[in-house]
Design a protein around this nucleic acid. Structure first.
Length: 383
DNA sequence: GTGGAAACCGCATTCCGCAC
DNA sequence: GTGCGGAATGCGGTTTCCAC
């Protein structure tokens, strides 16, 4: 008995079809993009609108609504996307990003410009958001935890040069700018003129970067001096003058920044942000307390830090405004546990007790268990 | 239809990390 | 050291809008 061939449905991908659909139906109720949009709509964006010169009845092309740009960046940040080009690609392919745009074309350049030009506005928005959360009782500032993390800078490890080399490169860059200026002014052909102008721009940028690198050298030299090292060995990056070679989590040394975050331990809301250009957390506590106080309008009740912040001077200053919780610093004589020290303490421990003022009510050094609790709370927060 | 103004966005360039 | 892909950014062309 012969068996006939099975009859099946095979895909026909060349078939044209039209579907009726709207952006609104792409996202379900309660989708994160809708929440982001609702949040953005509630914000006072007058600062962003103030910079738009295209007005009703006036000339010029309409600007893209700041709500869209802000919502795109906010949603992208929640998605862990930080590149303008990546957001631009997502706008083409991802329903949530398409929904946020609502048919408005947004180019990666516009996204990048918005982030670059509106830094102050975005910072102010953070303050306003925190104020709203405080008014609603979400942020209480009972315990604020601070920590930093090393973030790789956009500068090559091989871009660092000492003063002598930087000055040489700057001289060469200035000569190049002068040469290109003369070439542009000599009025070559139209097509060539654009290329020459681009080269001139690039040369000017390089000159400016080298000037910045040289301007930062004194700061780096002073650090070297404090560390007892030869200040002549100070080097700055030719491409990103503010980047500093720091010890990273994996033990390596790379150009990086040290962003500092302060967060309300109960609500997990970030209440302070700063980008430090030094690798150590020492010295970062007091400026952050001042920033959070200015941003929130009142002092935090308690401030939690890890061992990297516990320096005598910082603790003394911080204790004027809040109660500081941090790991107990070990005396240089590691053979002695100062907490166990009693009558007959060694001279070193007695001096340590006096220096740290453990009996002062304002400065409280919690023992290991309490510290672990604080650090855990902060770790959860960072997560 | 034309000109002017404002905003958008493509081009060109540089720099980076990575692979080889 | 070289090539490649990705990202950032200034300049200037293009687009859009309005008045005349």
């Amino acid at each position: 008995m012969t068996k006939t061939r099975a009859r099946v449905l095979l895909p026909n991908r060349g078939q044209m079809e039209f579907r009726a659909s709207d952006l609104e139906s792409l996202l379900p109720e309660g989708h994160r993009a809708r929440l982001v949009w609702a949040y953005v709509e509630r914000q006072d964006l007058s600062r962003f609108y103030a910079g738009i010169r295209a007005v009703d009845g006036g000339v010029g092309r309409s600007a893209i609504a700041p709500e869209i740009l802000l919502a795109l960046w906010l949603y992208a940040t929640l998605d862990g996307v930080g590149s303008a080009r990546a957001v631009s690609r997502l706008i083409e392919s991802h329903d949530a990003y398409r929904w946020l745009c609502g048919g408005v074309q947004v180019n990666h350049h516009t996204l990048s410009d918005f982030r670059k030009d509106q830094g102050e506005g975005l910072d102010e928005l953070l303050s306003v958001s925190i104020a709203s959360l405080m008014a609603a009782g979400v942020v209480k500032l009972k315990q604020v935890a601070q920590d930093g993390m090393r973030v790789r800078a956009s500068a090559g490890a091989g871009s660092f040069r000492r003063k002598e080399k930087l000055e040489g490169y700057l001289e060469a860059a200035r000569a190049e700018v002068a040469r290109l200026k003369a070439e542009v002014e000599a009025d070559p052909g139209e097509a060539e003129r654009a290329r020459e102008a681009a080269r001139l721009r690039a040369a000017k940028e390089r000159e400016a970067r080298l000037e910045k690198a040289l301007a930062r050298l004194p700061e780096i030299e002073a650090i070297k001096q404090r560390q007892g090292k030869n200040p002549d060995q100070a080097r700055a990056s030719m491409t990103d003058a503010e980047a500093t070679v720091m010890k990273m989590g994996d033990g390596g040394f790379r150009p990086a920044y040290n962003p500092q975050l302060a967060s309300d331990a109960d609500s997990l809301v970030i209440v302070g942000v700063e980008v430090a250009t030094v690798g150590s957390d020492q010295g970062q506590m007091v400026p952050m307390i001042e920033q959070v106080t200015a941003r929130c309008g009142r002092l935090p009740e308690a401030w939690l830090v890890d061992g990297g912040y516990v320096g005598h001077e910082q603790i003394e200053q911080a204790s004027q405004s809040t109660v500081v919780y941090g790991p107990v610093p070990q005396p240089k004589n590691k053979a002695v546990d100062p907490h166990q020290a009693k009558a007959g303490d060694s001279e070193a421990v007695a001096a340590w007790r006096q220096r740290m003022g453990t009996d002062e009510a304002k400065v409280i050094y919690k023992r290991r268990a309490a510290t672990a609790e604080c650090v855990n709370a902060h770790s959860r927060n960072r997560g």
